[in-house]
């Protein structure tokens, strides 16, 4: 009996917390479908009485959020592909290849994990400006092509690859890169999915750096465009909510698609770390 009551209590708490957690996102979708001005009435409505897609149409046509969507997509995809490859290469080498200075270099990288990236942002801007990449997507992409956390995540995973497997391939005369490509990469697929999702989400959601680098509205990523839009359209609750949906929905879909890998990857990165 008391066990049953405890079970009821646990589930009640979980459901209430779950609703509180998801409610802001549900309201975002609901308000985005309300006709202009409807969200600003009393009492504030929970559901649209007459659902409409007018705000989405306006955002994607007149306000050219579609272009920003593709800017975000291009920047996040390119960063993800290159960064996955470079981090996998480095993370695997730190875990499995024996070379002089390896552990000392890795220790230095780990120190960097404790340093917020914003600290070096002023000189970084001057570097990117020197390269002529200010106000281009490349200025955003180039700073994200390798990450300490990514290398760390891959290394933790690659440590479990048996040495015998690699040595056998070496005896057969395979080059190190060939071994990496044909044996190591397939073995690391689960962690690569995690890392890929992690980088994509991080790049898609990033705000401060694109805000600094991009000055031309046509080149904005979605978060930068949204932050600038809210300045002019702060009264247009429904329009802004449609913009939030356009920004958030792609990453939520990606997350739901890979959540199993993703959640396991995060738990792994923390426990073994």
């Amino acid at each position: 009996m008391s066990r049953r009551r405890a079970s009821l209590g646990v589930h009640l708490a979980l459901v209430v917390l779950g609703i509180v957690t998801i409610a802001p996102l549900l309201w975002m979708v609901s308000a985005s479908l309300m006709p202009a001005g409807a969200a600003n009435s009393l009492p504030p409505p929970l559901l649209p009485r007459r659902p409409t897609l007018e705000h989405y149409v306006e955002l994607l046509t007149r306000l050219s959020l579609l272009r920003c969507f593709f800017n975000s997509l291009m920047i996040a995809s390119l960063t993800t592909v290159v960064s996955m490859f470079l981090n996998a290469l480095a993370g695997y080498a730190f875990a499995k290849l024996r070379f002089p200075g390896r552990d000392r270099v890795f220790a230095w990288l780990l120190v960097g994990l404790a340093v917020p990236s914003q600290i070096g942002m002023l000189p970084l801007f001057l570097v990117v400006k020197g390269l002529g990449l200010v106000n281009t997507p490349w200025g955003v992409i180039i700073t994200g092509l390798a990450s300490i956390f990514g290398i760390f995540l891959i290394r933790q995973y690659a440590l479990s690859i048996p040495d015998e497997l690699l040595d056998a391939a070496r005896v057969d005369g395979a080059s190190e890169f060939h071994i990496f490509r044909t044996i190591v990469l397939p073995l690391m697929r689960p962690i690569l999915v995690t890392l890929g999702a992690f980088i994509f989400l991080g790049t898609w959601n990033d705000f401060l750096w694109p805000l600094i680098v991009l000055s031309d509205e046509k080149r904005f990523t979605l978060p930068v465009a949204l932050a600038s839009l809210v300045g002019e359209h702060v009264q247009d609750t429904e329009l802004m909510m449609a913009g939030a949906v356009v920004t958030v929905l792609p990453v939520l879909i990606l997350f739901f698609a890979v959540q199993r890998h993703y959640i396991r990857g995060i738990m792994m990165g923390s426990v073994k770390g």
Binding site: I22, N205, L222, V251, F255
Partner: peptide
């Protein structure tokens, strides 16, 4: 777990506006 984790993956700027 997925429900509680969902806000983490959302875009900070977008949900801050919400």
């Amino acid at each position: 777990r997925v429900v509680f984790f969902a806000p983490v993956v959302t875009t900070l700027v977008a949900v801050a506006i919400v």
